[in-house]
């Protein structure tokens, strides 16, 4: 028998600290599998955010930086400009990317920075205890929208993939989910495509991954996966929003 599935080399042996059923572990592995398959671990530099994945530098087996809240795209910008033959990825949650780091992500995209952003959207601030994020769905109860998010008070959930796809500098923008094996495989293909877009120097790339936070949603891991399907995908449609072809 031959091994057909194992831990990618681009992840360390460290046990992750994520809650049972949290999608971060899956998404970490997908990024690492792409790094392995493209044989780029030794020339990849990752920037992790503030949020649940703040400790991602312990899990990725490549050079890593830990950013201030929301600033990962600015950090990645400078590294990529100074070391243009390296692969740069940021790994950011929805509070980090779509709220406090909105300026950095929009401008990194507008400048067409040749970096790859892995954007994990689980509709709330996980690490701080499940507060409302810009991506929280209407009606969704969080600790800071205890009566459910209302448009008249908290506004509407932000669609980052759509928003960033309108920037000329964006070369590849895709939204996927990790709620079932087929979507997990699609997510991996999207991440690989994003890294290939970076390799070709076409511009900014981002994969928004709809992800489960069973703990803060108050659901079992399995119901969390169902919740993505039933609630998130209808508002956050999956698919490629921008694909810039080689000239």
């Amino acid at each position: 028998m031959k091994k057909v599935f194992q831990k990618p080399e681009s992840l360390t042996d460290a046990k992750n600290h994520y809650c049972p059923g949290c999608s971060h572990g899956i998404i970490h592995r997908l990024v690492a599998e792409c790094m392995d398959e493209m044989n780029i671990r030794e020339k990849t530099i990752g920037v992790c955010p503030v949020g649940c994945s703040v400790l991602a530098y312990d899990y990725f087996n490549c050079d890593m930086l830990e950013a201030a809240h929301g600033r990962a795209p600015a950090i990645a910008t400078a590294i990529k400009r100074l070391l243009p033959d390296r692969f740069l990825f940021t790994y950011q949650g929805d509070g980090d990317l779509a709220s406090i780091g909105m300026a950095e992500i929009v401008h990194a995209s507008a400048r067409g920075e040749k970096i790859t952003v892995i954007f994990v959207n689980n509709t709330l601030y996980g690490m701080t205890g499940g507060q409302m994020a810009p991506t929280t769905l209407l009606g969704q109860v969080t600790t800071t929208s205890p009566y459910g998010r209302k448009a008249e008070n908290e506004g509407y959930p932000m669609k980052m993939a759509e928003l960033l796809s309108s920037n000329e500098g964006s070369a590849y923008i895709c939204r996927t989910a990790v709620n079932n094996p087929a979507n997990i495989n699609r997510t991996k293909r999207a991440i690989k495509k994003a890294l290939q877009v970076q390799e070709k120097g076409l511009g900014f790339s981002m994969v928004e991954v709809l992800s489960a936070c069973p703990t803060n949603w108050g659901l079992s891991p399995l119901d969390g996966m169902k919740w993505i399907e039933d609630n998130m995908i209808p508002y956050y449609p999956l698919g490629e929003f921008k694909v810039k072809e080689e000239q």
Binding site: V4, I26, P181
Partner: peptide, 11 residues
Amino acid sequence: VVCPDLVIEVE
């Protein structure tokens, strides 16, 4: 593929 915790190896 669905395991978030790298528990499983498959042959």
